[in-house]
Simulated assay, not measured.
Amino acid sequence: MSDSNTTYFTNPSTFILLGIPGLEAAHIWISIPFCAVYAIAVLGNFTILFIVKRETSLHEPMFYFFCMLAVSDLVMSTATVPKMLSIFWFNSREISFSACLTQMYFVNCFSGMESGILVAMAFDRYVAICNPLRYSMTLTNSAVAKIGLAVVLRSGILTLPYPFLVRRWPYCRTNVIPHFYCAHIAVVKLACADIRINSYYGLFDLFSMIGMDVFFIAVSYTLILRAIFRLPTKDARLKTFGTCISHLCAISALYIPDLFSALTQRFGHNVPLHVLILITSVNQLVPPMLHPIIYGVRTKQIRGRLLFSLCSGS
């Protein structure tokens, strides 16, 4: 391509988000389930936060971790869905370069935090089942705060290179992003440069954060299951394992869509772009919606407090 047809700009003032390329005519219809899922996610996670704050009997490590997960779900979904809906409803496709980098950072950062919180919850279940007599001494309020801070710092620091790597490249020919948000790889594909360092860092981030988290969760549940099978009766084993069901469901809600999305992105070369983006949107929206439902249904204290509040209100 000749120089006259190529425009280089290190920092474009704006990017243009297409939403879901190829399905522009169906954006209004697609927005209906997306909006409904987002509304359920916001309502459900705020309900978890409200109930735990109001009910002093729930001021325990497990419920503090629930609240951390709820906050990360709220931030991650709010970082993408309002802009997505503005594209679908008002054709508001422009996003400034700085806002694009900020969105990219928040999505990656809080996605990593969710994973880290699930590790913390696995540790909570490990201590509760394998060392129940030391539970109150191990998971003090101070320890929970330090765990939360470690999760935030780890994710915040590991995600920090993404916007700096994106900012350093020159961009040419187009500033149109074929996506509904500023996904890291979708943005750097527009760069007129060798972006292998972005790909390598993305893999490093994936293995050092998600890979390590999955490993620690697997180790925790190996020890938990070993302790459960040592219990003398079947009823005791089932009752103890039942305390882990909510956490296992939360793990499945986060990692299964994430794994499916990653495999499709890497190996689904013949999959249409709009299908890949729809899979990504499900990965962004479903866990924040499912987590409060899982804990609301499976956790007796939260379910009881919610029913009491509803009955009192009526």
Rank of each mutant, 00 (worst) to 15 (best):
E55Y: 08
A227R: 14
L158F: 15
T174K: 01
S57G: 00
D235Q: 11
L18N: 06
R134T: 06
T243D: 02
R266L: 12
F15H: 05
F106M: 08
I228C: 07
I30F: 11
R168P: 04
A191Y: 12
K189C: 03
I251K: 01
C182P: 06
F88G: 00
A70E: 05
M289Y: 09
Y38F: 15
T159Q: 08
C100Y: 05
R168F: 12
Q265K: 08
G296I: 02
E60H: 14
K189T: 06
R168V: 11
G112K: 03
R173A: 11
S57P: 01
P232W: 11
N11T: 13
G242M: 06
E114C: 14
S246Y: 00
A128C: 08
C130W: 07
R266T: 14
L238Y: 12
P12S: 08
D205I: 03
L310V: 11
F123W: 12
I251Q: 10
R230H: 11
S111P: 01
V37I: 15
A41T: 02
G268E: 10
F308S: 14
Y105K: 04
C130A: 11
T233V: 02
Y105N: 03
I195Y: 07
P257G: 00
G296M: 06
R54P: 02
L139W: 10
M113D: 03
I95C: 11
L238G: 04
V81G: 00
V152N: 09
I185M: 14
K239I: 10
D213E: 15
V81R: 04
S309T: 13
L149R: 09
N5S: 14
N45T: 04
V37C: 05
R230N: 12
V282W: 14
I251W: 04
S13I: 05
Y126D: 00
H179C: 04
F308A: 14
I157V: 15
G156Y: 09
Y162W: 09
L23F: 05
Y105C: 02
M104Y: 02
A236P: 03
L276T: 07
I302R: 06
V107Y: 04
V275Y: 08
A79E: 00
H269A: 10
T222W: 13
T80Q: 12
I16L: 11
F123M: 09
A236E: 15
I30W: 05
Y221W: 10
T102G: 11
A262C: 10
A262Q: 09
A36T: 11
L43K: 06
N175Q: 06
F90P: 01
T240V: 03
V71F: 14
F204R: 08
S155L: 01
Y105G: 00
N11L: 07
L118C: 06
L238F: 11
W169F: 15
C172Q: 10
F15V: 09
P163S: 07
M76W: 10
L43R: 08
L259A: 14
V286P: 01
C67S: 15
V166L: 15
L254N: 11
P161T: 07
V286Q: 04
L118N: 01
T56H: 09
Y105L: 07
Y181G: 01
V214I: 14
Q103L: 02
E94R: 08
Y171C: 08
V166F: 06
V151L: 03
